[in-house]
Design a protein around this nucleic acid. Structure first.
Lengths: 153, 153
DNA sequence: GTCGGCATGTCAAAATGTTGACATGAAGGA
DNA sequence: TCCTTCATGTCAACATTTTGACATGCCGAC
């Protein structure tokens, strides 16, 4: 006969909206949406902005490294990079010096664009965390990290 | 002359990986990935599972309602529903009784499949929150909610 | 040295998602 | 009553992303 034992919930919840996964998705979607709207005025998409930000911090990063840093596939990152190159915001050598990795660098225009867009994005992030008590912010960051850590291995 | 005032960060951070947006993205990606792998064994995608879960809780929900509940467009939800209907997991009348909304319902097979998949998903969520102290879980949920609330209006 | 493992870049195809547009039905006000 | 407004379902076009595959170049074990 069929097992009718109810599946134990991961934690007490009255409905799906109280599950961690749901909240995570909801918050991510809201952030993504807000960033999309804000970045459109700067002629950037969210993945493009992410790439620029990452490149500003780690110049010379490869396409594969960029992909890992923005949590997409190498192929997706490649498309993003092509867009950025066509817009003159990054440079990428056509041949590698040493290995196969092609180091990507921001152009002055890229840095310019990033700095302009950064203000809008930071404003959103600030608005987002305005509602969480300051003393809980550190814990929140740590918990998000712990959850991600627990999943990918 | 150009404004060289550095953009104030939303909160003290040494690099991008300490920004809330980055952590949110990282955790979401990890969860999405884990769910993808687990649900594949049950012949479901993440959006499909989300729909089933939502329908189990609110039977008779419309396509548009489903779209709102899973944070995608009506068009995307429609594609998901077609897949679920072709798999015999849901029913949807071809004509509306009253308005234009077509109420969607789980079939017995759909309920069956959902219950089977739910175990795998709950296990993932449990593993995910294992690393966060129990007394912080409530606060975490509240903070995620507050952040989403602060963004979409 | 050579071989196998591994990471990288890239191509092609498919799945997934969005934007834009339009028709239909309900509800409410002039 | 008629008309505006709004939500819904759906079509088409497009953009984005992933999956799968393959060639190329390092690197360490043997």
């Amino acid at each position: 006969m069929k097992d009718r034992t109810p599946v134990p919930a991961p934690h007490p919840a009255r409905d799906v909206t109280e599950h961690v996964g749901y909240r995570l998705k909801r918050t991510s979607a809201a952030l993504r949406n807000a960033m999309d709207r804000a970045l459109r005025e700067h002629g950037l998409t969210v993945p493009q902005y992410s790439c620029l930000e990452l490149l500003d911090e780690r110049p010379g990063l490869s396409n594969a490294g960029l992909a890992r840093g923005t949590f997409v596939t190498r192929q997706s990152a490649n498309v993003v990079l092509r867009g950025l190159r066509d817009a003159g915001l990054i440079t990428r050598p056509s041949a590698a010096e040493h290995g196969r990795a092609l180091p990507v660098h921001l152009t002055p225009a890229g840095r310019e664009r990033l700095h302009a867009a950064r203000g809008a994005v930071y404003a959103i992030e600030k608005r987002m965390i305005a509602g969480v008590p300051a003393e809980r912010l550190t814990a929140l960051l740590a918990d998000l990290d712990a959850m991600a850590e627990a999943l990918d291995d």
